[in-house]
Design a protein around this nucleic acid. Structure first.
Lengths: 364, 364
DNA sequence: TTGTAGGCGTTATCAC
DNA sequence: GTGATAACGCCTACAA
């Protein structure tokens, strides 16, 4: 702060230290401090401290063409999965002087495009994308422009981008094995959207899991959700019940879908896990406080964020750093939503559909 | 985009439209478009479109001393209350070309100071603070520097800042009246931190609510939480049970504390609402999916964000715009966690403390 | 209505 | 080792 209320600039500091602004700049910048004599460096530093000098990042950005800002695209911050991830991202970025600009796309390609464009206009130094569909004009453009990009919780093998995600196949296999070991032989899957990498990976993991447990995929109904939402989970679970397949367990492609299952079972008068076991994926915050607490597949959310940030920072600092595909290991979390099937809901018709289409458990 | 890969600048546009850059600038800027002839305005607009011109916000900021960026300080994005608020904020800001820089303080004054300083260094145009304690050096500094500031979900009458919050007194009064009407005469309060405006307002509302229902505040124990966390709710509820006051209902100062109560009651072998009713405040996302679904006091989260953004934008565009204190109306949401007290837990000793300090309901 | 010129604060590239 | 100069891209008195 100079005598006038105006914030101190580099010129003020230079004047106070009686050096040229260029010298002051060199003295203050860690990268170039060695170009300047010990003595003047100290004088400049003192002056800066005395005046409360804060470099103006805007001016610096204009000159260096770095904004120290990265764009982060997520589907929806309201999905409890994202806050911890975003915090990991922000914390790691902050360490290096970067800040995140957050953009919600609501799973809408048009919104995604808008937000992406606005961030490009703001000259972000790179992007973290948690919204990538398998084929995606935004990815095409980012690749063409050679922007630093990291995919988070998504993979897209057709693009030269680093990514961090969970080993979805393995996670789902583990979930299926857990159900199989409990004695379930008819297991349904509520699959995620198949335009999204997690949707296909988890479906694949589901099928593999069945096979490796000697179960027949053809006996195992799969219903496809159009999005990772509670509403879709509700709809899919209703559909499953209506199909009357005699399933005793549902592996949902994520926790939101599982929450939808809870609601559907409630409405159908079925109980979890007594009548039907449910397992999710993500172990998102608060999911352990539902009744019953949801069994699910966990991965370290916060760390997903920090790793994504790390990869992006590497990419930004050297454009030709190698592309890295990072997988975090999933971990089965057994809570109260999964249990051995009860005797009376053995194969075929534990559930029957009433005329109205709502399902009731036959016995009990 | 020019023929070279370099993004188009204003000069490129001007050259393409065969006018001077200054003219191009005027033509492109809505504020000054009228200073330029219809004809050239169109030529410039065409050229800009053809070249895919995007004004460089960094250069603009340097010149106009506006960053079109605002700092948003919240305690913790992981608290489910905040995501919808933040989305409201971001959406409203985006309409006017602003973006939010998010900072989590974790309720720590040192972190708050750091984040605040970093945002100032980035020359944000204003702040939205959801972290304000009643007396706060950051607020002092912001007031002294005459920064545009809006308080969100907080008030601080000693400062000349606009604010948006819920009518906390009324909300809590309503909650207490609800319990009283159910027949509860011994109602406990888990109060929020008293350095925070919501903590004191809700405590005041609690006391007023008792009085207006003919209940005696002296019969109504109050335990103070050190923070709005599940852990503190757990601790406070345990403390309440240990005091053996014969309360049949708990009004928690917010939903997180109420969730802590659920856990404490569970551990003590008590059931909600059969043994003890619990009511929260906030109606945060997912709280309706707990068992039992929590009765609470709702306010429009998203709108809290949009209104805060609106107030800040007003403040930014005219520095001497009036200070506004905005209250949103709360609404009682009755779910399953509140019920009439059962006959056997009438006054005095429905709960007794076992030697180990853990509480058990006497009957049942 | 349009052009001129200067500067926002910083840093890169010269020359000394 | 330090100083001078120019430039990053844009905006805005002021002049024409």
């Amino acid at each position: 702060m100079t005598k006038s209320g105006r914030p101190a600039t580099l010129r003020d500091v230079a004047a106070a230290a009686r050096v040229h602004p260029a010298t002051a700049s060199r003295a203050l910048n860690p990268e170039t401090r060695l170009l300047v004599s010990e003595d003047t460096a100290k004088r400049v530093a003192d002056a800066a401290a005395r005046l409360g000098y804060r470099p103006n990042p805007v001016a610096r950005s204009l000159r260096t063409r770095r904004s120290y800002t990265v764009g982060v695209l997520i589907p929806d911050l309201n999905n409890p999965l994202f806050p911890p991830i975003v915090r990991g991202l922000e914390d790691r970025l902050a360490e290096k002087g970067y800040v995140a600009l957050l953009g919600n796309t609501d799973g809408d390609a048009r919104r995604e495009r808008m937000v992406f464009d606005q961030m490009r206009a703001r000259h972000v130094d790179g992007f973290v994308l948690a919204t990538a569909t398998l084929h995606n004009p935004v990815l095409d453009e980012a690749a063409a422009a050679e922007l630093p990009v990291v995919l988070m919780n998504r993979t897209a093998q057709d693009y030269p981008f680093s990514s961090v995600s969970v080993d979805n196949e393995q996670g789902t296999r583990t979930a299926v094995s857990h159900l199989a070991r409990l004695g379930h032989t008819r297991i349904a899957h509520i699959a995620g959207p198949q335009e999204i990498s997690t949707g296909v990976s988890r479906l694949r993991g589901f099928t593999e899991g069945l096979r490796s447990n000697g179960l027949d995929p053809d006996q195992s109904p799969v219903v496809y959700a159009a999005g990772y939402t509670i509403e879709e989970g509700l709809r899919c679970c209703h559909e499953l019940l209506a199909q009357d397949t005699g399933c005793t367990a549902i592996a949902a492609a994520n926790d939101m879908l599982a929450v939808g299952c809870y609601a559907a079972l409630d409405e159908a008068g079925l109980r979890c896990p007594d009548d039907i076991s449910v397992i999710g994926f993500n172990d998102m915050p608060f999911i352990d406080r539902l009744r019953p607490p949801l069994s699910t597949v966990r991965f370290p959310h916060y760390q997903l964020g920090t790793e994504a940030a790390q990869l992006l920072l590497e990419r930004i600092s050297e454009a030709d750093s190698p592309v890295k595909i990072l997988y975090l290991a999933p971990e089965l979390v057994v809570r109260r939503s999964t249990a051995a099937p009860t005797a009376d809901d053995q194969p075929s018709a534990s559930v029957s559909v009433l005329p109205g289409g709502s399902a009731r458990l036959r016995s009990r």
